[in-house]
């Protein structure tokens, strides 16, 4: 059976599809997607320069400091523009980044778009404690603004 299994076709998800799957479990989460007219490396580099351009794309996460990194896991300390401090735990891989604190969730993914450019998907918002849910207020608007800022950085 092993020999047979080796030859059977297998399907794999890209990073954007993975983000859609994870968001499906989170009540109130919205996935906002846009094709950005730039190469993946350039787009992903801006999104995941966590101590730099990331804070310009996600202004609430300004002043982020990566305190610890182990494999694809990281711990970051964030001071928001309103002065609140939070510890974020995350996983960062090529094309995929999730960061969560007690109160906030940030999810980003990117993959090459079939017609050229890079498909970027964002989700996140204010977490509801104790269950997989976000407060469903303004999540799409914030994501759209983040994508606008990302595009401005690329021009």
């Amino acid at each position: 059976m092993e020999v047979v299994n080796e030859h059977w076709p297998r399907a794999e998800l890209d990073a954007v599809q993975r983000l859609r799957v994870l968001a499906a479990m989170i009540a109130g989460a919205a996935v906002t997607e846009r094709v950005i007219a730039a190469p993946f490396e350039e787009v992903w580099g801006l999104l995941t320069d966590l101590e730099g351009t990331f804070g310009e794309i996600q202004p609430d996460m300004r002043h982020l400091h990566v305190a610890q990194r182990s494999g694809d896991r990281l711990v970051a300390h964030v001071r928001s523009r309103y002065g609140m401090r939070a510890r974020f735990d995350g996983v960062l891989r090529p094309g995929s980044c999730w960061l969560q604190s007690r109160f906030l969730l940030v999810g980003m993914a990117a993959a090459g778009a079939p017609g050229g450019g890079t498909l970027v998907a964002l989700t996140g918002g204010v977490r509801v404690p104790g269950r997989p849910a976000l407060v469903p207020i303004g999540v799409r608007r914030e994501a759209r603004r983040s994508l606008d800022r990302l595009e401005r950085l690329l021009t």
Binding site: R18, V21, L22, M25, I26, D89, G90, V91, W98, Q100, L105, G107, R127, V128, P129, G130, R131, P132, A133
Partner: peptide
């Protein structure tokens, strides 16, 4: 089920 997205990621 408690909303830990890193656990969701590992489960995926």
């Amino acid at each position: 089920q408690r909303g830990d997205v890193l656990a969701m990621n590992d489960l995926l």
